[in-house]
Structure formats: C-alpha cells, structure tokens
C-alpha cells in the first residue's frame, strides 16, 4: 500500500485533539476495571493464554523478560496514596494489584513510530497489530509507556505447543511467528465473530452480547467490557460500560480529568502522557 494511502486513510483514525479528532467510529471498545474488587488471582491472565494462543517461553526466556503475557497482573507493595508504608514493619494493607493489558489508546504512542504501518487505529477504535505487516523493528514497544507490547524473539510453535498441546490452539487467530510484535487485541476474534452473527441476522450488535476472555472469567467480575461510542458521539446507544464511565465522570480526550465530584474513583493510568487510554480503573479502597 502506498505511503499516500497510509497517510490519508489510516492516520485519520488516529485522534489528534488539536485537529478536532476523528468522529466516524463504528465502535469504541473499552474496559473498566474495579480495583476494589480485583483480588489479583491471575485468572484473567491465564484465560488470555487460552484464548489468544500465547506462547509459554520457559524460565530462561522469562528471565530475559521475553514472556508473552498480553494481560499481566502487576503487584506493587508501596501505596503512595496512603503514605505510611515506609515506616511500617509489615505490609499491613496487603498488596496493590493492577491487571495491565493494552490500553487501546486513542492517541497511541506506538502507532506513529511504526515504519510500515503495521499498527494503526481501526474504525472500532482499537489499536490494531497486523502481524503480516510487522517487520519487527520494535519501535512501537519502545514507545509504549505501559510496556504492553511483546516481541516474538523466537519461533515458539514447536517448543511452546509440543503435540498434542497444539490441538488447543484457537483457529480464529494467528499463531505469531518469529520477528513479529504482538499485544492484547481486546479479543478481536470475539468482536468479529459477534459482529458477523449480528450482520448475518441483519441487526445491530447488542451490548453484553459477548465479552473478552478476561472479563468473562473474572471471579469477582471486576472487569467490564463494552462500547464507549456514546461517550464520543452523541445519539449512540448507551452501554453498561459508557454508563460506568459517565458515572465516574471520566472523559475521553483529556490529559487530566475535571470531575464535579472529586470522590469518584475512576482514573486512567498515566493519562497525563496524553495517550488517551480506553481502559478506566476504579481506585482501590482500604480502611485505614
């Protein structure tokens, strides 16, 4: 595809606040993760391995940070907000867990640096990674402030799925080969399948008709998946997720939220970097 095509067609999906943004989205898939409910159990992460053909790399490669977990549960010990950990003898408020997957930024820092336009913004607001375009420059990964892009340093097909483990592979998406970058897709194969069914039945996609593997399995239902389009475009159907965002007074297209009610817990990780992520977290709660 020509450079002209890349510039004209694809960059239009990339938001520029300064240019008024792009408004022709079909969907804006997003998430909300309630850290008051998240228990850090890791079920979401393993569900992601099962759904998305993630390679198991083994201890040695893990030690070199070559692991492929699209969804990782980060754990922090200090609590800057509570301010008292430094002096305590014990971890008296437990741990801080943070499920981290691609934030599907509206102003994704990974997109403009790709020399071959293998990562771009789709009309449903997702940050796509096209494996067969990727040449493995890894610029995107360097530019991601969340460190959520994973590179195939090796071909894992034989090592990660010795027969018959390979029979478990999900045929709805590609097994990535050596030299390719990959990351969380918000289970794009599920999105596509649900859209296909809706289209086949000549109807609109319903809210809650499908969900991502992580949200589906979550034992505390801390993860909510849905469409944020009504936050972005007036007159679109409200989803459970957009109601949740609205209730938390978190808006897209901001580097800082100006909430009427400052007690509302919704926030976006590192939003000050103007990445405009589509994953909203709800603050963890502790009695002190």
């Amino acid at each position: 595809m020509s450079l002209q095509n890349i510039l004209q067609d694809w960059s239009k999906y990339r938001k520029g606040n300064e240019e008024g943004g792009f408004h022709d989205y079909e969907h804006l898939w997003g998430l909300a993760i309630d850290l008051n409910k998240c228990i850090g159990c890791n079920a979401c992460s393993v569900a992601c391995y099962a759904e998305n053909n993630l390679a198991v790399v083994g201890k040695d490669k893990f030690a070199k940070h070559q692991e492929m977990h699209w969804l990782r549960v980060e754990r922090y010990w200090d609590e800057p907000d509570l301010g008292e950990q430094a002096v305590s003898d014990y971890q008296s408020h437990g741990a801080s867990f943070l499920p981290m997957m691609c934030q599907q930024c509206m102003a994704a820092t990974c997109e403009p640096v790709c020399p071959v336009a293998a990562t771009y913004h789709t009309p449903d607001g997702l940050n796509a990674q096209v494996y067969n375009r990727c040449i493995g420059s890894r610029y995107c990964s360097n530019n991601c402030p969340y460190r959520l892009r994973y590179f195939n340093f090796y071909s894992y097909y034989e090592d990660s799925w010795p027969a018959p483990l390979n029979m478990q592979l999900n045929p709805d998406l590609t097994v990535r080969d050596k030299g390719v970058m990959e990351k969380c897709t918000f289970c794009v194969q599920r999105i596509r399948a649900a859209k296909d069914v809706a289209k086949h039945e000549h109807r609109e996609l319903q809210d809650g008709e499908f969900t991502t593997a992580c949200a589906q399995t979550c034992p505390t239902q801390a993860i909510v998946f849905g469409d944020l389009l009504s936050l972005h475009t007036a007159g679109k159907a409200e989803s459970t997720l957009s109601t949740l965002w609205r209730d938390q007074q978190v808006e897209l297209g901001r580097t800082e939220q100006h909430k009427q009610n400052p007690d509302k817990r919704g926030y976006r990780v590192l939003e000050g970097l103007n990445t405009d992520p589509k994953v909203m977290y709800l603050e963890r709660v502790r009695e002190v």
């Binding site: 789709t122 997702l126 096209v130 709805d172 590609t174 794009v188 596509r192």
Partner: peptide, 9 residues
C-alpha cells in the same frame, strides 16, 4: 471493508 483487522488477526 478495508480495515486490515477484518482479515488479519
């Protein structure tokens, strides 16, 4: 459709 992700995923 012209979206890469329609066919590649």
């Amino acid at each position: 459709p012209f979206d890469c992700w329609k066919c590649h995923k």
